[in-house]
Design a protein around this nucleic acid. Structure first.
Length: 372
RNA sequence: GUGGAUGUAGCUCAGGUUGGCAGAGCACUUGAUUGUGGUUCAAGAUGUCGCGGGUUCAAAUCCCGUCAUCCACC
């Protein structure tokens, strides 16, 4: 029995709406999850996250295990209790840090050794360790350690990373099967860079292990878009209706809407909060770099078409002032607006798919906002 | 009043002896950022070198005068 159910398939593209059921509820897809690396969506408190209809978020097990430490979260009653968030929590394993902290880690088949960016100490993590950390954090979705490779990478190297990712997924699943007791789910990560045959092969091996959904890793790392969409097409074809497809790390609105049309159900990305912190709003007209001098005397909202608290309350001139003076409220307001905007965007996408007008919606959107 | 120091980009200051395209950091402007190190990176704009005169092919730099600010002593 699968926990994913397709509601509507788009006729002209691979887009689809669906429902994913987990122990505490159901999320409707396509959906976007903001990133809360250190058990917080930077700049937003839990009641704000709730009021803008955030269905879930991604927390990073590696970062949280460094600080505050697994025992502290466990003793608090798990991540949901600790941070007061009752939506779906997916924990990332540290696989991305194998890519992003390339200079601070060493790899072998047994696991990964990171040099802590906090105090320089060495931490070795096996796939089993990571699963147990995630279970101690009491995440809803356990994601196994994987090897995320950079782009470009040779097919040979990508194949090696695939093999290791599959090996680790197997070991992780065994550990998960032994220790998961609270209805947590397990999703594996497909690798294979831009090589369709590797993607296909990796995917079938992961499905054989037994998974509750498929995470798509190793994309959004600088690859050309046609190669990205080739890979997504293969993955969508191979997973069919049974598995939710989660494109990790993808998150510019234009990238999201394109990936939805290639069959992706779930996204996470730092973009809305990072843009928020660095002075950029995303709006119905695309990116608005509020930090720019052009907005110094602009007394209109970030987005005339947005109903969020920030747009109903504040002007660009004020928010620019906050950003330019380094006031924390500026980052908070922009992050709030951006996540609100993303949630509304996903809701509009679902509505378009359900009403059979997704392609028109997508084309209109792209025409309106351009490349970003 | 006497002696000394200082004056160069919005700010803090290099450069000055030994004359040779006007500099740095910060700030500012514009980009980038995709399973987050609140960062980081990249590019850019900015000048009456206090003012006036002199020497010189050439002066922020050397000489004379002058103004302003600061310090010390009266």
């Amino acid at each position: 029995m699968s926990n994913f159910k397709v509601i509507n398939n788009d006729v002209q593209t691979l887009a689809r709406t669906g429902e994913f059921t987990y122990r505490n509820g159901t999320i409707v897809t396509p959906a976007f999850f903001p990133v809360g690396t250190q058990a917080t969506v930077k700049g937003l408190n839990s009641s704000q996250i709730r009021e803008i209809n955030t269905q879930g978020m991604l927390v990073n097990a590696y970062h949280v295990s460094l600080r505050p430490g697994v025992d502290i979260v466990k003793n608090a009653g798990g991540l949901h209790e600790f941070m007061d968030f009752n939506g779906m929590i997916i924990t990332d394993s540290g696989g991305y840090q194998i890519f992003s902290l390339e200079k601070l880690r060493k790899l072998n088949d047994n696991g990964v050794t990171f040099q802590s960016h906090i105090d320089g100490s060495y931490i070795t993590l096996t796939p089993e360790d990571v699963v147990n950390i995630e279970l101690d954090l009491d995440t809803d979705i356990v994601v196994p350690l994987d090897e995320c490779v950079k782009y470009p990478v040779t097919e040979q190297e990508a194949a090696k990373a695939c093999d290791r990712t599959v090996l680790w997924a197997k070991r992780s699943k065994s550990e998960f099967a032994r220790n998961a007791q609270k209805g947590n789910l397990f999703m594996a990560i497909v690798q294979g860079s831009v090589y369709p045959n590797l993607r296909k092969d990796c995917l079938s091996k992961l499905i054989d292990i037994g998974v509750d959904g498929i995470c798509i890793g190793g994309l959004s790392v600088g690859e050309p878009l046609d190669l990205r969409y080739n890979a997504l097409s293969v993955i969508s074809q191979e997973t069919g209706n049974e598995y939710m497809r989660y494109f990790m790390g993808c998150g510019k609105p234009r990238d999201i809407i394109d990936a939805v049309s290639y069959g992706v159900d779930l996204f996470d990305c730092v973009m809305p909060t990072r843009w928020g912190r660095t002075g950029t709003a995303y709006t119905s007209k695309g990116k608005v770099v509020v930090r720019n001098a052009a907005f110094a005397r602009d007394y209109t909202p970030l987005d005339e078409k947005c109903d969020c608290y920030v747009c109903k309350t504040y002007t660009k001139a004020y928010i620019r002032h906050l950003i330019n003076t380094g006031e924390m409220l500026g980052a908070q307001l922009l992050s709030y607006h951006n996540i609100y905007w993303y949630n509304k965007f996903m809701s509009d996408i679902r509505e378009a798919i359900n009403s059979g007008s997704f392609k028109e919606f997508r084309d209109e959107f792209i025409g309106r906002v351009g490349e970003e």
